[in-house]
Design a protein around this nucleic acid. Structure first.
Length: 513
RNA sequence: GGCGCCGUACCCAAGUGGUAAGGGAGAGGACUGCAAAUCCUUCAUUCGCCGGUUCGAAUCCGGCCGGCGCCUCCA
């Protein structure tokens, strides 16, 4: 995996296998979740899923920031984001937090992102955060000023104990350059230096999100929560720290400094950053007014969108580019992804249909694939593509290459000769297709069923029952060669968003889009 | 100003010095009551431009042009 710390790809070695600790910076819940949130959540959902498939036991911690994140962090003059929103909406701050936490969960759950193992909130860890501040003060790396506590960066930089972890090592910044170039240097109140950041802030009388502390009533600084909660749940040094690229500086740099100040250690061994997302070539930003929320994406109700896009289509679309590349949203690209996604799903279905009793337990690898290769050219081709999926995912979670291999595998599976291939080959192909598509990439069929000669699977919603009935009527019409009726049914279902597909074996499949 | 990224076919997008993955669209064929889907074939002698290193460069080096990001709240 690519480690931002070393700016190179490194072999992943867990600190305490088979356990892996991963901390990812989650959202500040003060507004509707948007595409950017989804991208970061998705990038680390893939990391989480793949590590689990490799056999690791992963503790995935993703925080919710519900206090302390200011509108203007550096100048420290800004209002707390949550408080501001609460004031505008005339509700309690915790109502804001609750509402947007729920919409964040809904939005990314629809994209089939797995929930993290622990999802701690900043406001739930005030006492722990105060303790971390005390440790940093005890280490001589923070100072109190008028009820606020600041991290003393100058001292940190000159301290020999942190020589191995210079400030700026993650983001490639040079402390001296920052000192002379940063706008924050000018007039920033209580701070000794413009680059110092708040660990604890004094609460003004109007500030209602406040807690008692040794320095008076106040609230924690934004960077502090991640240091505190990652240490509490994963230890002072853990395996993987993730987040959006925009958090690399100053947020993650501050985390490293805090962790050294409080615990004398680097927080994480591997730092992973997911890249930004653009809309029609430009970064999504509040100032540009080109934000697209997840709700708009799914409903199509945005000036930037020509139609709604299914969460799974969006997932597929994002996975078609690597997490460290920027990805650009345009209707043209999304529509192309929509078609490609349906095609891939059809291939998965075909792979499963081609084999009777499938052992879905595990994705074939190593020795299993050798066995498949014994079965001639077709078997070798199948094994090669499954191998390619493993190789791609093990190369910094290379989802675009994995998808490319799955398309190749899908084509093999739908060749006529596949039906006559030995059981081991068909079984391996089905397990490889479903394993990589569903388990690793988390791609699921939107909603689909099948009706016809074969009875279909257990379970069944009202829609499935109705479809069963409608398709039976249509099949009877076709048998009478009453194609006018059969085609009318097909056309009307299409208008309702249900696509029919008459298969060669006489059955009819349907997909809801 | 400092740090960094990108420019590959009509669109999206891989490409880690050895002769351009994959998807969408397009073209032709097979199959089909029709449609859809599927399968087969086809679609960049060329990787922003100009030099250099090399037996060999989309890949390495230098310069130029164009787009973007971080340094300021953003995932």
């Amino acid at each position: 995996m690519y480690n931002s710390l070393t700016r190179s790809r490194e072999r992943f070695i867990a600190l305490a296998p088979p356990n892996v600790g991963m901390y990812v910076c989650g959202p500040t819940v003060y507004g509707d979740p948007h595409l950017g949130h989804a991208r970061t959540a998705l990038a680390f959902d893939i990391v989480f899923r793949y590590l689990r498939v490799l056999g690791y036991s992963v503790r995935y911690v993703r925080n919710i920031t519900d206090v302390g994140h200011l509108e203007d962090e550096t100048a420290e003059t800004g209002e707390d984001k949550i408080l501001k929103r609460a004031r505008l909406e005339r509700v309690e701050p915790m109502e804001v937090v609750h509402r947007y936490t729920l919409s964040y969960h809904d939005g990314i759950r629809l994209m089939n992102c797995l929930p993290p193992s622990i999802e701690p909130t900043a406001s739930g860890h005030i006492i722990e955060q105060i303790q971390v501040v005390e440790r940093i003060i005890a280490a001589g790396l923070a100072y109190e000023q008028d009820g606020s506590v600041y991290f003393d960066l100058e001292k940190y930089v000159s301290s020999s104990g942190t020589a191995g972890s210079p400030y700026g090592k993650l983001s490639g910044k040079v402390f001296e350059d920052l000192l002379s170039n940063t706008r924050a240097t000018a007039g920033s109140g209580d701070k000794r230096s413009g680059l110092d950041f708040a660990l604890w802030k004094r609460a003004e009388p109007s500030h209602i999100m406040r807690w008692p502390s040794p320095w008076g009533e106040g609230f924690p600084g934004w960077h502090l929560e991640c240091t505190t909660m990652s240490t509490k749940y994963l230890g002072k040094t853990f395996d993987i720290h993730g987040g959006g690229l925009d958090l690399q500086f100053p947020h993650h740099e501050a985390e490293i400094a805090q962790n050294h100040g409080a615990f004398g250690a680097d927080p994480a061994r591997y730092w992973l950053h997911s890249n930004m997302l653009t809309v029609k070539g430009q970064k999504m930003a509040k100032s540009l007014g080109n934000f697209i929320t997840l709700e708009q994406m799914y409903s199509g109700e945005s000036p930037a969108l020509e139609q709604p896009y299914h969460p799974m289509v969006m997932r597929f679309f994002m996975l078609q580019s690597h997490y460290r590349s920027t990805v650009d949203f345009s209707n043209e690209a999304l529509k192309a992804a929509e078609r490609g996604y349906h095609r891939l799903m059809a291939a998965v279905e075909a792979a499963v249909r081609a084999t009777e009793a499938v052992n879905h337990q595990a994705i074939p690898q190593g020795p299993d694939l050798e066995e498949v290769r014994q079965e001639g050219a077709h078997g070798t081709a199948v094994a090669d593509q499954i191998e390619a999926c493993w190789a791609a995912m093990s190369e910094d979670f290379h989802t675009p290459r994995t998808i490319a291999a799955l398309f190749e595998l899908g084509r093999l599976v739908q060749r006529p000769e596949h039906r006559d291939a030995p059981g081991v080959v068909r079984d391996a192909a089905a397990r490889g297709m479903t394993g990589f598509t569903r388990q690793v990439l988390g791609l699921q069929p939107a909603a689909a069923g099948s009706a016809g000669a074969a009875g279909g699977e257990a379970g069944g919603s009202a829609l499935e029952t109705v479809m069963e009935m409608v398709l039976r009527l249509r099949r009877e019409a076709r048998e009478r060669r009453d194609f006018a009726t059969a085609d009318a049914i097909r056309d009307q279902l299409a208008e309702a968003g249900i696509r029919l597909e008459d298969r060669k074996d006489g059955t009819t499949g349907w997909t809801e889009s």
